[in-house]
Computed example of a mutant assay.
Amino acid sequence: MGLFYELVCTECNGSGWVVRGSKLVLSSDELVTQLSFKLQQTQRQIAALKGQTNVARPQREQSNRLGAGGTNYTGD
Score class of each variant (00 low, 15 high):
48 A>C: 06
32 V>Q: 03
34 Q>I: 09
75 G>S: 04
13 N>L: 05
34 Q>F: 06
13 N>T: 08
19 V>L: 09
41 Q>M: 12
14 G>L: 00
28 S>R: 10
1 M>V: 10
47 A>W: 01
8 V>K: 15
71 T>D: 10
58 P>I: 12
55 V>C: 05
69 G>V: 00
52 Q>C: 07
75 G>Y: 04
72 N>I: 11
20 R>W: 03
54 N>C: 09
60 R>K: 13
54 N>K: 01
41 Q>K: 09
53 T>A: 11
53 T>H: 12
19 V>E: 11
1 M>S: 11
8 V>P: 00
23 K>M: 05
19 V>K: 05
55 V>L: 15
34 Q>C: 05
72 N>L: 07
65 R>G: 01
65 R>K: 15
5 Y>F: 13
31 L>D: 01
67 G>E: 03
39 L>I: 15
52 Q>G: 02
58 P>Y: 09
66 L>R: 06
52 Q>I: 05
21 G>N: 11
76 D>T: 11
43 Q>V: 13
7 L>C: 05
36 S>V: 08
4 F>G: 04
6 E>M: 09
75 G>D: 07
59 Q>S: 12
6 E>V: 10
12 C>E: 00
37 F>M: 11
10 T>K: 08
25 V>Y: 02
47 A>R: 01
39 L>K: 14
6 E>T: 11
62 Q>G: 04
33 T>S: 08
4 F>H: 09
23 K>T: 13
38 K>Q: 14
68 A>Q: 12
75 G>P: 06
34 Q>D: 02
7 L>Q: 11
31 L>G: 05
36 S>T: 14
71 T>G: 13
47 A>P: 04
70 G>Y: 03
20 R>C: 00
54 N>S: 14
17 W>E: 00
20 R>P: 15
72 N>S: 06
16 G>Q: 02
72 N>V: 12
47 A>H: 02
40 Q>W: 03
73 Y>L: 04
63 S>P: 08
22 S>R: 05
42 T>Q: 14
20 R>G: 05
19 V>Y: 10
32 V>D: 01
8 V>N: 07
7 L>W: 07
24 L>S: 11
47 A>S: 15
17 W>A: 03
58 P>F: 10
51 G>L: 05
73 Y>M: 01
57 R>M: 08
18 V>R: 15
65 R>E: 14
67 G>I: 02
32 V>I: 14
62 Q>K: 15
47 A>Y: 00
57 R>Y: 09
3 L>R: 15
61 E>A: 10
28 S>G: 03
33 T>I: 12
45 Q>H: 11
38 K>D: 09
40 Q>D: 04
37 F>P: 00
28 S>T: 07
70 G>A: 10
46 I>W: 06
71 T>P: 00
41 Q>R: 12
76 D>F: 10
19 V>M: 02
28 S>C: 03
56 A>G: 03
49 L>H: 12
61 E>G: 08
32 V>S: 04
15 S>H: 08
50 K>C: 15
24 L>T: 05
4 F>T: 07
39 L>S: 04
66 L>K: 02
3 L>Q: 04
24 L>C: 03
2 G>W: 08
34 Q>E: 13
1 M>R: 13
43 Q>G: 02
28 S>N: 07
58 P>R: 13
28 S>K: 14
58 P>E: 13
53 T>R: 15
3 L>G: 03
